[in-house]
């Protein structure tokens, strides 16, 4: 496959995942509306099995495509410079742009933990029978879990802050103005991250309680 074709697939799947992140965040923020509303949200989803499973299948496909293209391209990129420089300085490459693979791997690790935690409920077997609201609140009172969630979101923020403008460049939207997309990417990454981080933080601080 041509490298640019792989990049286009990576950009499209990445943008799809960004759309999911936004929708998922809107769902999660309902925790501030209290247990009734928050617990009703997954219940509602379960009433639309076709919709739920279409979304799940699309998500799994997008993740698979994104990860496969990232492996394909990263391997080739590493092979393109077999002998490293003894001394090399970056003039303007951002930290985010240089740590996309690392960030992606952290996100993947986090995702598996997150599913095990709140979807499959393996992490705290003693809370497994509780409702989602109580499970969420009790687990984020654990500092270690809250800290891990926050740390993962920092990596997500980096990945998104570069991924947004990078995808715009790959899809050639930046032909007219690259700066707009760069700042839109920073704004999107910041908004998403603050939204997600606020949940474990406000629970840990006791602002949201069982």
């Amino acid at each position: 496959m041509a490298s640019i074709s792989a990049k286009i697939l990576m950009a499209l799947s990445g943008l799809f995942l960004m759309g999911f992140l936004l929708v998922h965040l809107l769902g999660n923020l309902q925790i501030y509306a209290g247990p009734e509303v928050f617990n009703a949200y997954p219940e509602t989803l379960r009433h639309y099995p076709v919709l739920l499973w279409t979304a799940r299948v699309l998500l799994i496909l997008a993740f698979t495509l994104h990860i496969l293209t990232s492996i394909y391209l990263s391997t080739k990129n590493k092979a393109a410079r077999p002998v490293a420089y003894a001394q090399k300085h970056s003039v303007q490459a951002s930290l985010a742009s240089r740590t996309m693979l690392l960030g992606g791997l952290v996100i993947l690790g986090f995702l598996l933990f997150h599913l095990a935690h709140l979807t499959w409920r393996w992490v705290f077997p003693e809370y497994a029978a509780l409702d989602l609201y109580t499970l969420t609140v009790l687990s984020f009172q654990n500092s270690l879990v809250a800290a891990f969630y926050v740390l993962a979101q920092v990596f997500l923020a980096l990945h998104l802050s570069h991924g947004f403008s990078s995808a715009a460049q790959t899809l050639s939207l930046t032909r007219w103005c690259a700066t707009t997309f760069r700042f839109a990417g920073y704004a999107f990454a910041l908004a998403i991250t603050l939204g997600y981080v606020s949940i474990p933080v406000s629970i840990w601080l006791g602002l949201v309680h069982a």
Binding site: Q92, A93, S172, A178
Partner: peptide, 26 residues
């Protein structure tokens, strides 16, 4: 390799060619 849009190339280009040409190539 392929482009990951770090923009390092345009910073060292002696003719200061912008990465806009990469968007155009895409």
């Amino acid at each position: 390799g392929s482009c990951t849009n770090t923009l390092e190339c345009e910073a060292v280009c002696p003719k200061e060619i912008s990465t806009r040409v990469i968007a155009e190539l895409n």
